[in-house]
Write a protein that binds this DNA or RNA. Structure first.
Lengths: 206, 206
DNA sequence: GACGCATTATATCGATCGGTATGAAATTAT
DNA sequence: ATAATTTCATACCGATCGATATAATGCGTC
């Protein structure tokens, strides 16, 4: 009942995603958002709540639409392939010309005024969650004999996340996809030779 | 002639450095700055110019005071020691409890409103300059036989900078120094074995 | 057609943004 | 002492910030 909406809330959310991605949470003004979304301020507040609420909805959408490759990467058979696909997939997203360069979850996380501290905390929490997921995957790899005896999966998860974040910063500064690929390629070299795992996979060991 | 200043411009600049470091360029308001510096707005504008001018002066001071270890690292005899000292030294700065966590040059670089675009461009330019310096150092290492035949110094410079930037993001999110050390340690493993260089240094080759 | 309801459009809220105009206070030169 | 000069304190500038109050508009229901 009542007057129907004149816009598609999901489509408008995508427009907001682009603005937040490019400007960050603090840098995106309500005027920027409403203009890009093609709606008025009251419509925005009625549909999504305040700026923080809108940003959290954008974040959810971002993870679903642009970070879905992470789940696939974690399903790779080896840690090496997981990390390789993680970094390559991340490089693809960071430099996709269909979106602003860099990572939405990073562009709003590093700096900002005192009033946006809750947002930064939320982004830190989400990133920790990602890292924890990767760590668990690497613990499995460690249990399966991959990743030598003295290696700490937590250290490796931290390392991979750090390389990814560094790539994100570089992407936001204009790095090309090929440059990021080469960074990922070099980063992979830090991995132990992983002969144990490949032997195990090829059935040589038994 | 005239009334003498009631504050030390250099000391006030350090106070401004702290604020910009913590909040980033956009996130630091003139009120934040004047309160931390202990001076009034007219004094600030008369002494340093506008907000952008002040930030550039802060940047110069930052590089002199907190990034001086870079020059020392570049003087190390081998590429491995250079990179090691670079990443360790960076980790030290990023987690020094005397300053806000993270990197000033990064905290203001990633996100922000449209009006602070010139600042972001300047930060990108300064970072490119750093990377170029590192690349030249690695080219020397390559010419000296370190860094295997097929290795591109530019790729390695990009890789090292990416790891450093990732560490900076993590530091801004609360990472500890030990965590960053372990990231740096793993990052170093990507380097080729460098037997040629060590042989050369030890005089074994001749 | 009249009523109730949800969504629009317009105008505006107080607060804060970066940046200044205006004088009073404090120093040196005369 | 007086004039010249510079800094400091106060108040304020127009613009923009996120967020709303008010009322006109469009729909389903009765």
């Amino acid at each position: 009942m009542g007057r129907p909406k004149e816009f598609d809330p999901d489509q408008a959310l995508c427009a907001a995603l682009q603005v937040f991605w490019k400007r960050g949470f603090d840098g995106a003004s309500m005027t920027d958002l409403t203009e890009a979304m093609g709606i008025t301020r009251p419509s925005l507040y009625a549909t999504y709540g305040n700026k923080e609420d809108l940003f959290r909805k954008v974040l959810d959408r971002y993870e679903q639409s642009h970070l879905c490759f992470v789940a696939e990467a974690l399903d790779e058979p080896t840690a090496r392939e997981t990390i390789d696909r993680l970094l390559k997939g991340y490089a693809d997203v960071l430099t996709n010309p269909l979106h602003p360069p860099g990572c939405l979850g990073l562009n709003s996380a590093v700096c900002g005024g005192a009033e946006s501290e809750p947002i930064r905390q939320e982004l830190i929490a989400r990133r920790s969650l990602s890292e924890e997921t990767l760590r668990k995957r690497l613990e499995r790899a460690s249990a399966e004999g991959e990743l030598g005896a003295g290696e700490d999966p937590a250290d490796w998860a931290r390392y991979v996340m750090s390389v990814g974040l560094g790539m994100a910063v570089r992407a936001a500064s204009g790095a090309t996809r090929e440059e990021l690929y080469r960074v990922a390629q070099i980063a992979l070299r830090a991995l132990p030779a992983a002969q144990a795992a490949s032997r195990q996979l090829e059935g040589v060991e038994a």
